[in-house]
């Protein structure tokens, strides 16, 4: 890909969780870091999220979940991304996710998982390297 092109990231609230402070804050941080952020708004389904990712031609997808529904949503997202042949786009998750689930999420195909332990720098660097690879 052209490295001068701005990174386009889809930030999404998937599922019924309505806590959006994290996703809005991180969206703002990523914009400051020079990325183009497309935000879905609340209560999107995995199918809506994948469709938006295709239509907006994003490079990477970030999903915010604080409601403990991360495992089932991750499985659906990974399956739908394969079905729509966009599994090359890295899938990131962030929110309240217990440490023991982070390994499980990575095993099923989530590229990166961020919690409140993560720094902005860590997230930004991860996104750059995930897209290069």
């Amino acid at each position: 890909m052209n490295t001068n092109k701005k990174i386009r990231i889809l930030m999404a609230k998937v599922g019924l969780d309505g806590h959006d402070k994290g996703v809005l804050l991180i969206s703002s941080i990523l914009r400051d870091a020079g990325m183009e952020v497309i935000y879905t708004g609340l209560r999107r389904t995995p199918a809506e999220c994948v469709n938006t990712a295709i239509q907006e031609d994003v490079d990477i997808i970030g999903i915010s979940i604080l409601s403990d529904a991360h495992m089932s949503i991750a499985k659906k997202m990974v399956a739908l991304m394969k079905e729509n042949e966009i599994e090359d786009k890295p899938l990131l998750m962030g929110g309240v996710i217990p440490d023991e689930d982070i390994t499980k999420l990575k095993e099923i195909g989530v590229a990166g998982v961020f919690t409140q332990s993560s720094t902005y720098e860590e997230m930004i660097n991860f996104i750059h390297s995930a897209i290069k690879n």
Binding site: G15, L16, R43, T45, S67, D68, A69, M71, S72, I73, K76
Partner: peptide, 8 residues
């Protein structure tokens, strides 16, 4: 839409 969220 409730799938994965029931009883959570």
């Amino acid at each position: 839409r409730a799938e994965g969220e029931v009883g959570k």
